[in-house]
Amino acid sequence: MNGVPLSRPMVLTGRYVQLERLRQEHAEGLAAAAARDRSSYAFTTVPDGLDGARAYIDLAMSKERAGRAVPFAVRRLSDDTVVGSTSLLDLDVFTWPRVAGDTGPVPDDEHPPTVAEIGSTWYAADAQRTPVNTECKLLLLALVLDTWRGLRVTLKTDARNARSRAAIERLGAQFEGVRRAHTPATDGGVRDTAYYSIVAAEWPDVRTALERRLER
């Protein structure tokens, strides 16, 4: 397969951000980013302090080793500062015929993911409402839908998180519905989850719209 490998460190670089495979050397940067202002993290799992950042990275890397996730640190290029994290999750390779309950082979360089989720995303307060999120999503969507020739990208959030839902909708993702009583919430309750998606047929228009937003 040509393109970005799954088995070696990958770096995705745009005009505003660079996505780097998340590693322990990012811990101090993540801790500093998360500490600047935590008021927007009510519905989001964000590390707190250096020990919290190290544990956060350990957990993300354990999911990576299982072969179903690729976590990234987000570096803002204008000041070479780590400003958050995002991940590709629930990576799956479609095979036919598909046996009920079969999750498919673990993705690798020869069998790139057919579907993925963009999630576990958070940014420092001073990176929010800037081109950072738009370009992060553009880079990840291009990886899945162009380089890997994937079919679908899922995005989801706590149904109560109006700010996150609005950001997802601005990307051009299609709302699919709410999965009720879906998972434990970060505030100790039970979360309803709002689901969105972008499929391959929609990607050219979505990509054009995102590129135009970054040109403003």
Results as ranks from 00 to 15, higher is better:
Ala200Trp: 08
Ala127Tyr: 07
His111Cys: 02
Ala100Cys: 00
Ile57His: 05
Val74Tyr: 00
Leu141Gly: 04
Arg212Trp: 10
Met10Ile: 14
Arg54Ala: 03
Tyr41Pro: 00
Leu141Asp: 00
Asp51Trp: 03
Ala42Leu: 15
Ala33Gln: 10
Pro112Asn: 05
Ala34Arg: 09
Ser85Met: 05
His182Asn: 15
Pro112Leu: 03
Leu59Tyr: 12
Leu214Ile: 09
Leu19Cys: 07
Ala69Ser: 15
Leu19Ala: 07
Pro105Thr: 10
Ser78Glu: 14
Gly49Lys: 09
Ala159Gln: 00
Val83Arg: 01
Thr183Gly: 01
Glu25Gln: 15
Thr157Ile: 04
Leu145Trp: 02
Tyr16Met: 01
Arg152Ser: 03
Arg8Thr: 15
Asp48Gly: 06
Asp192Trp: 05
Pro5Glu: 05
Val144Cys: 07
Trp122Asp: 03
Met61Gly: 04
Gly3Ala: 09
Glu64Thr: 01
Ser87Cys: 13
Trp203Ala: 02
Val74Cys: 03
Asn2Ala: 13
Ala185Thr: 06
Leu145His: 02
Arg213Cys: 08
Thr121Cys: 04
Leu155Ile: 14
Ala209Met: 10
His111Glu: 06
Glu169Asp: 04
Lys156Val: 01
Arg76Tyr: 02
Glu202Lys: 00
Ala209Phe: 04
Gln18Asp: 07
Tyr56Gln: 09
Thr208Trp: 08
Ala124His: 05
Ser197Lys: 06
Glu117Trp: 05
Arg149Asn: 13
Thr130Lys: 05
Glu135Val: 15
Ala142Gln: 14
Pro204Asn: 13
Pro9Arg: 11
Met1Ala: 07
Glu215His: 09
Glu28Lys: 14
Arg23Trp: 04
Pro9Val: 11
Thr44Arg: 05
Cys136Gln: 10
Met1Tyr: 10
Ala116Val: 10
Ala32Gly: 09
Ala209Gln: 11
Asp126Ser: 09
Thr130Phe: 11
Arg170Ser: 14
Tyr195His: 13
Arg152Val: 00
Pro97Ile: 00
Lys156Asn: 14
Leu89Glu: 11
Ser164Gly: 02
Leu19Phe: 12
Thr154Trp: 10
Gly189Met: 02
Lys156Gly: 04
Thr45Phe: 12
Gly177Gln: 12
Gly29Met: 12
Ser85Pro: 04
Ala173Lys: 03
Ala142Asn: 14
Ala34Gly: 13
Ala194Val: 07
Ala53Glu: 07
Ser40Gly: 06
Leu59Ala: 14
Arg21Ser: 11
Glu20Ile: 15
Ser7His: 12
Arg23His: 13
Glu215Leu: 06
Val206Lys: 00
Phe94Leu: 14
Arg165Asn: 01
Ala201Gly: 14
Arg21Met: 09
Arg207Tyr: 01
Trp96Tyr: 12
Gly3Val: 06
Ser78Cys: 10
Thr114Lys: 05
Pro112Thr: 04
Leu151Asn: 12
Gly84Asn: 01
Pro112Arg: 02
Arg207Ile: 06
Ile118Glu: 00
Val17Glu: 06
Thr81Arg: 14
Asp79Leu: 01
